[in-house]
Design a protein around this nucleic acid. Structure first.
Ligand code: ZN
Length: 311
DNA sequence: CATGCCGGGAA
DNA sequence: TTCCCGGCATG
């Protein structure tokens, strides 16, 4: 068994970063990627808090029947660096005051949340590919997958180099219950997948305490869960609109009638009468907030047109 | 102010 | 290709 490793912050000297919820809305955006380099480079004085927080599990996705194969998590084919990981985290953490990844040997990994699978890849795209091919069937690489898929994976932080160790007890140092309500990512079921099994969900009150046992098979997420799909920009001509309807209840339909410009030349530029009705539904940014940017859909993270809450 | 996202750019 | 940001348009 591969032992594993889990978030074990607090190694070495106590980090004094006590950014008491400072975190300015925007300041946090200063390059939130530079945390890739493992090892040193601990300089970066700026330490916004990109924390990982919240948890909640998607409705334990059950393997789309088809090839049963029951137990035995065979790995169909792999070629990625994976790290086995099986562990239960101590309940949700709101967690690390660390700005998203910090300290050496701490790497963000993406763990598949499917039934028996515990694959962990290092990139979001990698895990998406994995889920798409392994779990969503479609062994042939040419899977259509247009833009409406649901991937279940969680972003975790593993501490390498201690792979075989008693491991960690992360001790999330739960702050003064400051954590915002655990928003549940809009999980949607793709109609085409032969999903079986009711799959119960277990949620907890907004003020999480008492980690209610969730589904037995649910790998209990530790950080966040993202249900994403590739960005698939506006390109892709032959884009067949996915049948599955979109989510978002659409609170109130506000009919904003665009006034007809009395007499204006249809300038391709931007005529005064050109109204680009800003989207109605709240997009990822507003829903999740800056502090959980990792939960936005890909498009939103790239400041493109949202694809998860498109109206 | 905040939010959404086009267009442009880096790797 | 994936990823991100400047800056504008929009409330
Ligand atoms: Zn979005």
């Amino acid at each position: 068994m591969a032992a594993t490793v889990l978030t074990s912050l607090s190694t070495s000297p106590l980090v004094l970063t006590q950014t008491s919820s400072a975190a300015v809305p925007e300041s946090a955006s200063r390059g939130w990627k530079e945390a890739l380099s493992t090892s040193y480079s601990s300089s970066t004085s700026g330490n916004w808090s990109w924390d990982t927080s919240d948890q909640s599990v998607p409705s334990t996705p059950s393997p789309p029947l088809s090839n049963d194969a029951s137990k035995s998590f065979l790995l169909p084919s792999q070629g990625d660096d994976v790290i086995e990981d099986v562990t239960e985290s101590t309940h949700f953490p709101f967690v690390d005051p660390i700005p998203r990844k910090r300290k050496n040997s701490m790497k963000v990994m993406f763990k598949c949340l499917w039934k028996n699978c515990e694959k962990v890849l290092s990139t979001s795209s990698g895990i998406q590919r994995h889920i798409r091919t392994v779990h969503l069937g479609r062994n042939c690489d040419s899977d259509y997958s247009d833009g409406e898929e649901d991937f279940y994976y969680s972003e975790i932080e593993v501490n390498m180099d201690s792979l075989s160790e008693g491991l960690s007890s992360l001790t999330p140092t739960s702050p003064t219950t400051s954590g915002p309500p655990p928003i549940f990512p809009p999980v949607s079921i793709t109609a085409c997948l032969p999903r079986s099994e009711p799959s119960h969900i277990a949620m907890r009150g907004t003020h999480g305490h008492a980690p209610t046992l969730l589904s037995q098979s649910a790998p209990s997420a530790l950080c966040h869960i993202r249900t994403d799909h590739a960005y698939q920009g506006p390109l892709t001509h032959t884009r067949t609109v996915s049948f599955g309807e979109k989510r978002q209840p659409a609170l109130h339909t506000h009919t904003t009638i665009s006034k007809t410009p009395p007499s204006t030349a249809p300038l391709p530029k931007s005529a005064p009468g050109t109204r680009k009705p800003r989207g109605e539904a709240k997009k990822c940014r507003k829903v999740y907030g800056m502090e959980k940017r990792d939960m936005w859909c890909t498009a939103c993270r790239w400041k493109k047109a949202c694809q998860r809450f498109n109206d």
